[in-house]
């Protein structure tokens, strides 16, 4: 049964990812992106990373994609579409095929683990940073071995917030431009 779910959600994810690239409309791309991110979250559940699956849905499929859709609907001008040149098409397809072959070849290097190792809800004393499902494990890891990266991530979020405020503040030079209005050219 896990095998069926794995193949189903992998196929769904890859199909949705292909549709992200192939859709003409950016809004449709964003919708397919949400499906792809949901498929990855389902794969996380199959890997028993429940906390990360929830985080993926809430942060990525929720917050990030809503922000994307908001900006797409604010900006996307439907009038001009630049056709993809043949050179671009060839380069993109060659890159796709070669990267896929390389990834396949790299994945073959790993040993086949037919059965997943058993997993507890909470980490044991013997292996405090062993794989466990409870969200408590993340807290323990973040405040012991990964304390410095955790603080840096907090600082990064603060600087991103300040940066976004600075970027979206209107200067007198472009005060007359409104992104919601159609461009005057």
């Amino acid at each position: 049964m896990p095998a069926f779910f794995f193949y189903f959600f992998s196929a769904l994810t890859i199909l949705a990812a292909l549709l992200v690239v192939l859709n003409r409309d950016a809004v449709n791309s964003a919708m397919c992106m949400i499906v792809a991110l949901g498929g990855v979250a389902a794969l996380f559940v199959l890997l028993q990373a429940y906390f990360l699956a929830v985080l993926q849905i809430v942060v990525y499929a929720g917050a990030v994609m809503v922000l994307f859709l908001f900006i797409i609907m604010l900006l996307d001008p439907k009038t001009r579409r630049i056709p993809v040149s043949e050179m671009n098409m060839v380069v993109g397809l060659v890159a796709l095929v070669m990267l896929a072959i390389g990834a396949f070849w790299l994945a073959r290097q790993y040993p086949t683990v037919a059965n997943l190792p058993p997993v507890e809800a909470l980490p044991t004393d013997a292996a405090p940073l062993g794989y466990a499902t409870a969200a408590k494990t993340f807290g323990y890891g973040l405040f012991t071995r990964y304390l410095l990266p955790f603080e840096v991530a907090g600082f990064l979020l603060l600087s991103a917030m300040v940066g976004v405020i600075v970027l979206s503040k209107r200067t007198p030079a472009d005060a007359h431009d409104d992104p919601a209005k159609p461009p005057r050219k």
Binding site: S10, V21, A95, G102, A107, Y110
Partner: peptide, 16 residues
């Protein structure tokens, strides 16, 4: 499904 299967899916996603 083993580790190879998951890594292959991840590789295809990255390539796409």
């Amino acid at each position: 499904p083993g580790l190879q299967a998951y890594l292959t899916v991840a590789g295809f996603l990255f390539a796409i």
